Computed example of a mutant assay.
Amino acid sequence: MNIKIEELLSALNRKEEEKEKNTVLWVLAIIGAVAAVAGIAFAVYHFFAPDYLEDFEEDFDDDFDDYFEDEEE
């Protein structure tokens, strides 16, 4: 009789451990999915967003060159 009770208790313990492992696995899967969606959203935004800084740098370089050309003359 004690053997059957011990078997039932060990089976319950195994199920509890499996539930805990399953919960951790689900939490990690959800975190991974959110991170993947965020990464994709950032990549799409970065690809489609215009680069305003590039235009500014070109204008700055032109002005900078003009300044030094004026001094040499």
Rank of each mutant, 00 (worst) to 15 (best):
I3G: 03
W26E: 03
M1S: 05
L25M: 09
E73N: 12
H46G: 01
A41V: 07
E73I: 15
V24F: 10
A43K: 04
L12I: 05
I31T: 08
L53A: 12
D62V: 15
F60I: 07
I31D: 00
E16H: 06
L12G: 05
D55F: 10
V37P: 00
L8I: 13
G32L: 10
I31E: 00
I31F: 04
P50H: 02
N13I: 11
E54R: 03
F68I: 07
I5W: 01
L28D: 06
E18N: 08
E71G: 05
E57S: 07
E58K: 14
D55S: 14
Y45M: 05
A41D: 06
L9M: 10
D51M: 03
D66Y: 14
D61L: 14
D61W: 10
D66P: 07
I40W: 03
F48R: 00
E69N: 12
L8E: 11
L9S: 07
E54L: 12
Y45D: 02
E71S: 13
Y45H: 04
K19R: 07
E17W: 12
F60Y: 14
T23H: 06
E69T: 09
E71D: 10
D63H: 13
K19G: 01
A35W: 00
E7F: 08
E17K: 15
G39K: 01
V37M: 08
V27L: 11
L12C: 09
L8Q: 08
H46I: 03
E73W: 13
N13T: 10
D55P: 00
N13E: 11
E71V: 15
P50M: 01
L25G: 08
H46D: 05
K15E: 15
P50Y: 02
A43I: 07
E6N: 09
A38V: 12
L9Q: 09
E54G: 02
N13W: 09
N22E: 13
K15S: 14
G32V: 01
A49C: 04
T23M: 06
E72A: 13
A29G: 11
A29P: 04
I31M: 08
F60W: 13
E20D: 04
D62Q: 13
E73R: 12
M1P: 06
F48Y: 04
P50L: 01
N2K: 14
R14S: 13
Y52I: 11
F48S: 01
E18A: 14
F64P: 02
L53W: 05
A49E: 07
E17V: 08
L9W: 03
V34N: 00
F42S: 05
F42I: 10
E71A: 15
A41I: 02
I30Y: 04
V24D: 02
L9N: 04
E20V: 06
K4A: 15
L53M: 10
V44S: 01
A41M: 05
E72D: 11
E20I: 07
I31Y: 00
K4N: 14
A38W: 06
W26H: 06
V24I: 09
E6M: 14
E6A: 15
D61P: 02
V27C: 08
I5K: 06
M1H: 09
A33G: 04
F47N: 03
L25F: 11
W26F: 06
R14D: 13
A29I: 13
E16S: 13
F42W: 07
V34C: 05
Y67V: 09
K19I: 15
V24M: 06
H46R: 11
K21V: 09
